[in-house]
Simulated scan of single mutants.
Amino acid sequence: MPDIGYYSFSIEPEKLLKIGYVLHRSEANSSMMPTYQRLIKKSRLTAVRKFINEEHGYFPNSIIISIDSKKPLQFDRSEKQVPNAVADLGILHLPQQYRSAFIIDGQHRLYGYSDSPYAMTNSIPVVAFENLDQTEQVRLFMDINENQKSVSKKLRNVLNADMLWDSPKEAERRDALRLKIA
């Protein structure tokens, strides 16, 4: 990204949960203004956890964070690199301290892994910036949430009908037929 370096990596959710923090818009965080995250919705968290646990689901899109480090992050560059690539391969060492990773986007996806048997066995993609000030975090949060467009219900129904049409489960094939009729 122009003018902003970042890290892209995968991590077990449990490890990120231990160092992650969400700047919720609440009185508890009023001294840390500007804050930007909406409070976690219990119903959304329950649905995400059910998706992960019961359907063995995963989310291929990245959690966005800002790593708050007192000293520069340690990045051990790998000896093997892709020639002429714009990225470096290596190992990033994260601070082992609670509230060192501010969750900018993906709080429900991340917290859906809390109390999940998959918290240590799954891996989630992360895009991490280093020491973004809170104003920049707010801007990034707004860019993400204002410029994304959700898939319409009509398109979801068409895609589900196509996807479930040849399902080995009779109930899913029946759902597909209902969706096609509708």
Rank of each mutant, 00 (worst) to 15 (best):
D133K: 04
Q137W: 01
Q148M: 15
F129L: 04
N147R: 15
L159D: 03
E136L: 11
P125S: 09
E136K: 13
D143Q: 12
E146C: 12
Q137A: 04
R156F: 08
K149L: 14
K153F: 12
K154S: 12
Q134C: 08
S150I: 07
N160F: 14
E136Q: 13
S152L: 09
V126A: 00
R139T: 08
D133V: 07
S150F: 06
M142V: 11
V126S: 00
V126Q: 00
N157C: 12
L140F: 03
I144Y: 03
Q148K: 13
S150A: 14
F141T: 09
N157V: 05
D133H: 11
A128C: 07
V138G: 02
E130C: 04
Q137M: 15
E146Q: 10
K149P: 03
E130S: 07
I144N: 06
I124W: 00
Q137K: 11
L132A: 05
M142R: 10
A161D: 06
V126D: 00
V127F: 02
L140E: 03
K153S: 15
N131F: 12
E136F: 03
S150L: 09
R139E: 09
I144E: 02
E146G: 11
V138P: 02
F129V: 04
Q148F: 07
F141D: 05
L155K: 08
M142G: 07
N131P: 07
N147L: 08
E146M: 09
P125W: 00
A161T: 11
I144K: 04
V138T: 08
S152W: 06
D133G: 04
V158N: 05
M142H: 08
M142A: 13
F141R: 04
I144M: 03
E136W: 01
V151Y: 05
N157I: 06
E136I: 12
F129G: 01
N131W: 03
L159A: 14
D143E: 11
M163Q: 11
S152P: 12
V126F: 00
R156V: 15
L155Y: 05
L132P: 02
N160K: 14
M142N: 08
A128D: 00
N131E: 07
N160P: 03
D133Q: 05
T135V: 09
E130P: 03
A128P: 02
P125L: 04
R156Y: 06
V126I: 14
L159K: 06
R156S: 15
D162V: 13
L159C: 08
M163D: 06
M163A: 14
L155G: 07
N145E: 07
F129A: 03
S150R: 11
E130A: 01
M163W: 10
N131M: 05
M163Y: 15
D162G: 15
P125G: 09
Q137C: 09
L140P: 02
M163T: 11
R139C: 06
N147D: 10
K154T: 14
S150M: 13
M163V: 14
F141S: 06
S152T: 12
E136C: 08
K149V: 15
P125V: 04
N147Y: 12
Q137Y: 03
N131C: 10
V127R: 00
K149N: 10
S150Q: 10
A161W: 05
K153V: 14
L159I: 15
K153G: 08
V138D: 02
E146A: 13
M163C: 12
I124S: 00
L140T: 01
A161M: 08
N157F: 11
A161V: 11
L140M: 13
I124Y: 00
K149G: 09
N145K: 04
Q137F: 03
Q148S: 15
T135N: 10
